[in-house]
Nucleic acid binder design. Sequence first.
DNA 1: TTGACATAGTGTCACAGAGACACTAATATG
DNA 2: CATATTAGTGTCTCTGTGACACTATGTCAA
Lengths: 227, 227
Amino acid sequence: MSTEYTNPLFTVDSVLFTVKNGQLMVLLVKRAQAPFTGDWALPGGFIDVLQDINTDATASRKLEAKTGLKPAYLEQLQVISGPDRDPRGFSVTLAYFALVAWQDVSPQISSVESASWIAVNDLEKTNLAFDHLQIIQMAKQRLQQKTLYSMTPVFCLPGQFTIAQLKSVIEAIIEKPIQRKSLMRRIEASGIFEISEEKIPSGGRMAQLYTLKPGADLVNFERNLSL
Amino acid sequence: MSTEYTNPLFTVDSVLFTVKNGQLMVLLVKRAQAPFTGDWALPGGFIDVLQDINTDATASRKLEAKTGLKPAYLEQLQVISGPDRDPRGFSVTLAYFALVAWQDVSPQISSVESASWIAVNDLEKTNLAFDHLQIIQMAKQRLQQKTLYSMTPVFCLPGQFTIAQLKSVIEAIIEKPIQRKSLMRRIEASGIFEISEEKIPSGGRMAQLYTLKPGADLVNFERNLSL
DNA sequence: TTGACATAGTGTCACAGAGACACTAATATG
DNA sequence: CATATTAGTGTCTCTGTGACACTATGTCAA
């Protein structure tokens, strides 16, 4: 009944997405050590039980180290485990999926050489460590699914945003066009958004800025957007 | 960068539900060792890297040990972690949620003294170890949510079942009545059920038996049942 | 100043699937 | 054969998405 000899390697990795120029991007870091030296991998690492109160804190801390800020959205994705996914032996990884506005991280990220945003649809050309490609695909699927029945994608936008921006982010995620009207109905129905005082120019009529109501929880709609 | 000193205790626990006499029940075991000796707890334990190919196998194996069979449905729920949830120190628990037909396990379970089905709505009266009460509530919420947009509850039924049985299981889970008609529409629309050759008596007209198509995946509907 | 254009936002109809509920079908029992 | 009981259908309402035309308000160039 002792646990010493069987305790497997436990790590926390995060799939941090953002949307930039209509493309879904994921943050990857270049591995410095073996195994998979020089390949791209998900940012992550080991729990530090002295400073992390739980695994969410671990994920958040590791992401802050790379981006300079805590992710706007963070949610557990899945635990992946097995004897063969890490050559060093049986390993258990808790994968998170997270969102940020690229406008918020853009300044920091460019200064770090070892971290980089890569378009999710370009990953075939990239050498990815471990089973991180599959994890990213899982995270993408989950994000797409959530986008159909919630406003999760707002976390890819800065504090103030227009409907057009939100629409564009949603379309980048699900890779399908949606109706402006449907989005506005949902914004209205969710009750979690506030109309800002400001408007911003857009090339035509001024666009209304919205903000998330402080402390408002995301709502799940009863119907999906159609695929 | 060594991992030895910080590697926390990692366990796998499962919330195994079934529905019996219109009540959602959860399988609990009586703890024999400290901490929480004599309290009820979720069935679970440590990974055995020699025989478990992953954590799913761990959960499945532990449940089979208690019930005599593998659960019909098994899905990861969440990882719960923290320094205070186990008095022995920082712990990480991967919680699963699982379903079985009570008809399938009923014979075995009664023979084991240390395991017992307890109605989820009676848990206030029960002494539960660790944070297992919260985990069960999380699992219940997830099951309720899934019931609104999928046929997940079929896994609380034996291989052949009637619409009335499925209706009754769904109603026990979401604690609301639903329309027979809506359920039939979904059975039809999902395309994952087969009409069996048999019918069974029911007190009135004979009831059609249905089976899950072999190898069919669960479908997610685009709308929720209303709460 | 004005007209063309571009983007923001609205009005409204069609469509699909859930809710409600009455109706028909089939089986048991007195 | 009448009645009770459960299975299954017909069909209307209701709600929210899709589609798309229409109005509103800004810029820019002639």
